[in-house]
Design a protein around this nucleic acid. Structure first.
Length: 502
RNA sequence: GGGCGCUUAGCUCAGUCGGUAGAGCAUCUGACUUUUAAUCAGAGGGUCACAGGUUCGAAUCCUGUAGCGCCUACCA
């Protein structure tokens, strides 16, 4: 209670403090209305965006004037010389306005006096280039389109406080062009993936976000509750099982879904609780085909965004040139450790791992031990893309057994500079075998593995009706965007990253 | 989850050995009027994240809490 009162008191004080800044602007807002100018009108017809003007009038020489009348809208980013020079910014760039009583229509000077940095305005006037070389609109007509009540961050240093940038992303976007560019590139990349797959005959589908049984990946789910159905539901950790049901149904031999997944796990510069993935499935294909399409898709994006196969990430340079090496996980581990884990059982592998300085709990699956050694010893050495193929069967419950080795699966993960970019396999379509794998998972869960997968009878029932041999592939889009935009924190390429409530 | 760090005006940041809380931008008043981080003169603006403690005295030292960041662990 006392706590609540304190919080309330603090909020009241903040409101009063805020009022000092809002008050002046509110007064200006009211003055505008009193003068007959609505500070929040309905629309504005602009003839140009700022970039179009920059291109169209690029030819003007210093001091040259035109009789061309243009109209445009944007947010005031700076005001100089007591309102004579105003910079406005729209989504394409900045342009300078010249506000002088010699050009302004009658009454418009009143509006000019009531403008603040941050206000969104619409203007009309003639194009010219100033003697100092700045492309400028001589304002004749001026309209406030949205009066700002709070001041923008400082014009020179901008907004740098990371917490504010994430919590109030709109301020970040107003002030930091780099943030705009990254989120635009994200949008572009998703668009390009969609276009690439659609052009290849893949059908985009949507499957549930609310799952009665979490499946398709090894991860801890978010739990929620449906009132009418009176049951728990899980936010999906992966769309995999539903997509395979669509393959069973023959909706299309090639399908994909781009959507959100949710995992109730740690948050870091590489993990957000909700993230976007693309999963695609192609009937009559296997994991070799999935490697081909992974390379094709990623290089298509790299080329589209960068125009070259060599890109910078942090202080490293990555070469995406194909073909990418395809190396067996066990061989990579053996190269690094001189141990042939293929010839060891789970317990022997665990002891060997310990000798290598990697602590693995007793009873750990053979595959988990190998994967752990791989991620500690091999993964950090990977720079350019590598398909790490033939992963252990016991940690791949949805993948087909390797056609040449019963300990391995036809599954690969593509790694780039410590990023797991893709995860794919020849999908298991033998219903009896799938049931055994689920049973093994259930047992692992009973033995304490929190992330073990659940028995999914409805999926098994679908397999009973026959799924064609199918290749499946999943790519984490956020990390892909990070790589392609040279971004070190996942929060910078998600508009509203998950933060603790304040 | 563990370790380290940060939190001072709306924004960006100073603040020395513990001794009256500072600057620039922004705001307000005025001057100036082809500037572009405009300039000049003046004014207002602070629960120094929060809660305790030590001290004659704390933004500063100590403890705890919160948020954020970085590293680390798990995961994609």
């Amino acid at each position: 209670m006392a706590q609540d009162k304190k919080v309330q008191k603090k909020q009241t004080q903040e409101l009063e403090k805020e009022n000092i800044y809002r008050q002046t602007r509110l007064e200006k807002c009211h003055k505008l209305r009193a003068l007959g100018f609505e500070p929040y009108p309905y629309k504005f017809n602009a003839s140009h965006m700022s970039q179009e003007i920059a291109e169209k009038y690029n030819y003007l020489v210093n001091g040259e004037k035109t009789e061309d009348i243009v109209s445009l809208a944007g947010r005031i980013m700076s005001i100089r010389n007591s309102g004579m020079f105003i910079d406005i910014k729209d989504s394409t760039g900045k342009i300078q306005l010249f506000g002088h009583k010699d050009f302004l229509a009658p009454g418009m000077t009143d509006i000019l006096k009531l403008l603040d940095i941050g206000d969104i305005i619409g203007v009309e006037g003639k194009m010219r280039r100033t003697p100092r070389g700045q492309l400028t609109v001589n304002i004749e007509k001026l309209e406030v389109l949205s009066k700002t009540l709070l001041p923008l961050p400082e014009k020179y240093h901008g907004l740098t406080d990371q917490e504010t940038r994430y919590r109030q992303r709109y301020l970040d976007l107003i002030m930091n062009e780099e943030s705009r560019d990254k989120l635009r590139l994200r949008s572009q990349i998703i668009h390009d993936i969609r276009q690439f797959l659609t052009n290849k005959g893949y059908l985009e589908v949507e499957t549930p976000m609310l799952h009665p049984i979490p499946g398709g990946a090894t991860a801890k789910p978010f739990v929620t509750y449906h009132n009418t159905l009176d049951c728990e539901l899980y936010l999906r950790i992966a769309p995999e099982l539903y997509l395979k049901k669509l393959i069973v149904g023959g909706l299309s031999d090639k399908i994909f879904e781009i959507n959100r997944c949710f995992r109730n796990e740690g948050i870091s510069t590489r993990h957000n609780p909700e993230f976007t993935s693309v999963e695609l499935y192609a009937a009559y294909k296997d994991y070799n085909d999935m490697m081909d399409i992974t390379e094709e898709l990623i290089t298509f994006l790299v080329k589209k965004i960068h125009g070259t196969m060599q890109i910078k990430y942090g202080d490293k340079e990555i070469d995406f040139s194909t073909p990418w090496p395809r190396k067996s996980m066990c061989h990579l581990v053996q190269d690094c450790t001189n141990v042939d884990f293929l010839s060891l059982d789970a317990e022997a592998a665990r002891i060997k791992a310990k000798e290598l300085g990697i602590e693995v709990e007793k009873g750990t699956l053979w595959g988990n031990t190998i994967e752990k050694i791989f991620s500690e010893k091999v993964e950090p050495t990977i720079l350019n893309p590598v398909h790490v193929i033939d992963m252990p069967l016991d940690i791949s419950p949805l993948a087909k057994v390797h056609r040449n080795n019963p300990l391995l699966s036809e599954r690969f993960e593509t790694f780039v500079l410590g990023f797991e970019l893709a995860n794919a396999f020849s999908e298991l379509n033998d219903p009896e075998e799938q049931r055994k794998r689920f049973e093994a998972q259930v047992k692992a869960g009973e033995d304490g593995d929190e992330e073990a997968q659940c028995m999914d009878e409805s999926f098994l029932n679908a397999l009973d009706y026959g799924m064609p041999p199918t290749g499946g592939l999943g790519i984490g889009i956020d990390r892909l965007v990070m790589l392609l935009t040279n971004t070190l924190s996942i929060r910078d390429i998600i508009a509203f990253p998950t933060l603790r409530q304040k």
